[in-house]
């Protein structure tokens, strides 16, 4: 699913990365715990989170996540945005809560991690 489609489904606003909306994400990953993301996220997932601190960007960088969508209209501070620009990570924000966001993306065909890995 492309970020453009995701933007439409979630009625999201692009914080940074307007030029990269044709990028594809392979699956959805919803979490507010970065250790969980580190443990389970696959590269090229879309991270949906309610956290907006710089650790979100660090975590995304470490596991090769290239797009993050903040939920419930949350927006990160300048420091976090700067870090995301530096690390080439697209940031979106949607007014929808986590549950509604995941539900709509899943319904529209975005895959998830089904099997727990080691």
């Amino acid at each position: 699913m492309t970020l453009k489609e995701i933007k439409k489904i979630l009625k999201a606003e692009v914080i940074i990365g307007e030029d990269y909306l044709s990028m594809e994400v392979k699956m959805g990953c919803a979490s507010d715990l970065m250790s969980d993301v580190l443990a389970y996220a696959k590269p090229d997932a879309l991270l949906l989170t309610g956290l907006t601190n710089s650790q979100v960007i660090r975590t995304a960088e470490i596991v090769d996540i290239r797009a993050v969508c903040f939920i419930r209209g949350k927006k990160p501070d300048e420091r976090t945005i700067k870090l995301a620009i530096e690390k080439n990570i697209v940031l979106l924000t949607t007014q929808m809560p986590m549950f509604e966001s995941c539900g709509r993306l899943y319904k529209n065909g975005l895959a998830s991690r089904l099997v727990k890995h080691k």
Binding site: A30, M96, F99, C102, G103, Y106, R113, L114
Partner: peptide, 20 residues
């Protein structure tokens, strides 16, 4: 459940549970 948050929510959404 062994499933992830994204998967559980997706399936619940399919059963008609909404987040708003």
């Amino acid at each position: 459940t062994e499933l992830s948050t994204f998967e559980v929510v997706g399936r619940l959404y399919g059963l008609g549970v909404r987040g708003i």
